Simulated scan of single mutants.
Amino acid sequence: MEKPDFPLPAGKYLVTGAREVTTSLTVSENGTWQLGDGAKLYDVTHLPCRSARYTPASGATCKPTQDLELQFPVVPGAVMPPQAGCNKQDYAVLFVIGVAA
Score class of each variant (00 low, 15 high):
91 Y>C: 11
24 S>L: 14
44 V>I: 13
9 P>D: 09
61 T>V: 09
68 L>G: 01
19 R>L: 07
41 L>V: 10
33 W>S: 13
40 K>A: 09
95 F>I: 11
15 V>D: 07
101 A>G: 13
83 Q>F: 01
49 C>N: 15
3 K>S: 04
62 C>V: 00
12 K>I: 08
14 L>T: 15
13 Y>A: 09
13 Y>S: 10
75 V>M: 07
33 W>N: 14
90 D>P: 15
9 P>S: 12
94 L>Y: 12
38 G>E: 05
80 M>T: 13
45 T>P: 05
87 N>I: 04
74 V>E: 07
48 P>D: 06
87 N>L: 10
2 E>D: 07
53 R>Q: 13
53 R>D: 07
72 F>Q: 01
79 V>S: 14
71 Q>L: 09
33 W>V: 06
63 K>V: 03
63 K>W: 00
49 C>F: 14
90 D>T: 13
101 A>D: 15
55 T>P: 03
86 C>K: 09
11 G>H: 08
13 Y>F: 06
83 Q>P: 00
91 Y>W: 12
27 V>Y: 09
40 K>I: 00
81 P>S: 03
100 A>Y: 09
77 G>T: 11
2 E>Y: 08
88 K>E: 08
63 K>L: 05
90 D>R: 14
2 E>T: 14
54 Y>K: 03
45 T>C: 05
15 V>G: 08
42 Y>V: 13
86 C>L: 04
45 T>G: 07
84 A>W: 00
50 R>Y: 07
89 Q>S: 10
48 P>K: 07
46 H>A: 11
80 M>S: 12
53 R>P: 02
28 S>L: 08
21 V>I: 11
35 L>N: 02
76 P>E: 07
30 N>Q: 08
23 T>F: 03
38 G>K: 05
67 D>H: 00
69 E>K: 09
16 T>Q: 02
43 D>P: 02
18 A>R: 11
19 R>E: 10
45 T>M: 02
89 Q>L: 12
29 E>Q: 11
58 S>F: 05
62 C>G: 00
44 V>W: 01
57 A>L: 11
78 A>S: 12
6 F>N: 15
61 T>G: 00
97 I>P: 07
66 Q>W: 02
50 R>K: 13
15 V>H: 07
32 T>C: 08
75 V>E: 12
13 Y>L: 10
33 W>M: 10
37 D>K: 10
81 P>M: 03
6 F>Y: 15
39 A>Q: 02
78 A>I: 05
36 G>A: 07
71 Q>T: 06
81 P>L: 03
43 D>L: 03
7 P>Q: 11
29 E>K: 11
56 P>I: 03
26 T>A: 10
24 S>C: 03
26 T>Y: 02
55 T>I: 07
27 V>W: 06
20 E>L: 13
74 V>D: 05
33 W>A: 14
29 E>H: 04
54 Y>V: 04
97 I>F: 04
14 L>G: 08
5 D>Y: 04
83 Q>Y: 02
7 P>M: 12
48 P>G: 04
78 A>Y: 08
63 K>D: 01
90 D>W: 12
98 G>H: 12
64 P>Q: 01
96 V>F: 11
15 V>T: 13
87 N>V: 03
7 P>F: 04
8 L>Y: 11
29 E>I: 03
1 M>T: 13
51 S>G: 12
